[in-house]
């Protein structure tokens, strides 16, 4: 709060002039003003400015057209019904035109959707491609083969091992445990027999999704 050189906050002085202080505060300041000429002069200036502003600030009159303009706006405000009521009224008055307009709007909205045709079947994962393969070779036990090639001697075959197909050039194909592949996967009665296996390979590996097989 700003104070003047007489230690009376400026705000208090303004409030005193406007008679906004509590009665005892107003009284206390009145006494100070009585005994201090300089303080009284400051007060008089504030009062003088307030009076001059009150008496001399000229407020311009409203232009003549403003009253009419506001009156017109008030009438407009009154005549604005709710949105649904407006639409209903328009339909009632211009049924044919409204139906045509609605049909036109619907066409505009629906056409782009139809023009694209029916949705196409998109593979669930477009990143994976499948290639058809026909491979020939001997049925082997992949696990035993791997352990053998690692020079592990004490190999004990188990029915839990996986069967695969070894081609003439030494490639080993695994079978996906699915459909026909499941029939080959753990059936070691076919071991060392030559088979032709057909199926799909997903991605870049050597795992066949077997569709058919036959003994050669």
């Amino acid at each position: 709060m700003q104070t003047n050189k007489f230690s009376i906050p400026q705000e208090k002085l303004a409030a005193y002039v406007d008679r906004e202080l509590l009665e005892d505060e107003q009284e206390s300041l009145s006494q100070k003003f009585e005994h201090d000429k300089s303080l009284r002069e400051m007060l008089e200036v504030q009062q003088s400015i307030k009076v001059r502003v009150k008496d001399n600030v000229q407020l311009e009159k409203a232009p003549v057209h403003l009253r009419a303009r506001i009156r017109r706006k008030l009438v407009e405000l009154e005549n604005i019904p709710g949105f649904v009521a407006q639409i209903t009224e328009i339909f009632r008055m211009h049924t044919t035109k409204s139906l045509m307009a609605t049909a036109f709007l619907l066409t505009i909205i629906i056409y782009p959707w139809f023009s694209k045709g029916l949705p196409q079947h998109v593979p669930s994962n477009p990143g994976i491609t499948a290639t058809y393969q026909v491979v020939q070779g001997k049925i082997i036990c992949i696990d035993c083969e791997q352990l053998h090639s690692a020079h592990i001697k004490a190999i004990k075959h188990s029915n839990l091992h996986r069967a695969g197909l070894k081609t003439a050039n030494g490639d080993i194909w695994e079978f996906l445990d699915y459909a026909k592949g499941s029939e080959l996967l753990h059936d070691f009665s076919r071991a060392n027999k030559t088979y032709q296996v057909e199926g799909y390979v997903f991605s870049n590996n050597q795992i066949l999704n077997v569709t058919s097989y036959q003994k050669l």
Partner: peptide
């Protein structure tokens, strides 16, 4: 109206 317009101005 006048007093409001004058003040608004």
């Amino acid at each position: 109206m006048d007093v409001l317009y004058g003040t608004a101005l």
